[in-house]
Design a protein around this nucleic acid. Sequence first.
DNA 1: CGTTTTTGACCTGCGC
DNA 2: GCGCAGGTCAAAAACG
Length: 521
Amino acid sequence: MENEDFLRSTGQGREERHEEMRKLASSHDDSHQEHDHVIRSQLESIRVEMEEAKEENRRLKSSLSRTKKDFEILQTQYNQLMVQHDDSNNKFSPEGHHQDKGNISEREELVLLSLGSMTNKEEKGKGLMDETGDGKKIDEHEKSSDQGLSMRFEYEDLSNPSEKLEIDHSQEKTTLEVSNNNMIPSENSYGFKNDGDDHEDEEELLPQNLVKKTRVSVRARCETPTMNDGCQWRKYGQKIAKGNPCPRAYYRCTIAPSCPVRKQVQRCSEDMSILISTYEGTHNHPLPLSATPMASATSAAASMLLSGASSSSSSDAADLHGLNFSLSGNPKPTSPPFLQTSSSPSSSGHPTVTIDLTASSSSQQTFLSMLNRFSAPPNNNVSRSNSYPSTNLNFSNNTNTLMNWGGSSGHNNEQYRAAYGNIGMHQQSPYNHMIQTRTTGSSFDIFGRSSSSSLHPTQTNLDHVGIKNITHQVQTLPAETIKAITTDPSFQSALATALSSIIGSDLKKDSVTKNEAKKSP
DNA sequence: CGTTTTTGACCTGCGC
DNA sequence: GCGCAGGTCAAAAACG
């Protein structure tokens, strides 16, 4: 009995438990179904997003492939032009070519660097946007130079397919820049802003914000009141800054009404032939082709400042195989290097990169030498007994292209002289040929030396300016450093800009010399 | 007449 | 808080 009762009770209990479980299960099913439903809907939305992303990806891929094709076509055409130009150079300037050949023998790969320089087109009129203007009679080089500063990088290895990937990589970067030649958002490759539509959002991003506030100062010998950097500027103010009798002019970009880019232009108080243009901000609109190099260069320089500032904070001093990295209280280095970054009181606390383009022809050789070294491919382990891959620097300058980033509005040299006094503007002072690099509270002297040498532009006594020392220092760079430097598009861009101005400057002098020689045989 | 330049006034940040 | 210097605004003038 007790057993039966027990069984019955247990049976009832079992049923009850079953019932409870059924209830639990049903309630669990309900919540589970709800949860499933939520997950499914989320999955569905994610799937939709993925489809959109795929579609976007497909579009980007096709766009990229199109851009690559375009670039290859352009590259082929350009190579042909370079070959033609080399031939003509062999005929007309065997001496300069001879100097190059000395370097070529040591080079590991072929780097074609085509640089044009500013013309004084702007003096003829405001034709910056008119890229299809009156260029009927000019050849391709002239066309490119006619648009202002033109520069291109070609990085080719003819012998080592394994390095082709690297090359393609760099080309791809170049291609992106070229394909976006009217869009400075191409500065993406430098980690800059993507688009200028929503500035407020990007203000919150620290690095970009820093870039925005970073200023790039370009020092160049320019006889006209303003450099023709290809962009359109409107003057909105002028001040006489303390410590400099020359007024500082304030410009803003007028290509787009909402463009945040500002420019300050001021003559150097010590040497009034030097024009200091300080750029701030990033264009948020398509740029004319002629404005792209300068914009890219300044962006690259700003990017370099960023990377330098971040990297230099880790240590107080370093000596990297002859390259003197130092952090000091006095940001002004004892030697005048190439690139200079600083946070001076004059820049109102803005980190400022200074690109010094007041270089001589000897510095051009220095530059070429350095570029050759710096352009060495990162991994040259492959034996190439028979091949002497070369670095061919081809400066496709028309001799008429001057380092005359001429101002607009009918200003001319006479006006300039009237405004600033009739100072000697032609080779009035020795050209320093350094690029200085200063970071906030730190200094980066890429030469690790001081130089107070004064050279005539045509002087090519390399020892005099310590070329041997430089070469040695660069040669002793570790492969990683060389790789990091040479693969940095920022470096290439900034270097190309500096080179182009130097070459343009020297070509101008050469052309002047030639003209004078013609006049007085 | 539209655009650009000039220029004095004003604003802002920083050091004292 | 004050003064200074850098930077910007905006009305007037100049320019094309």
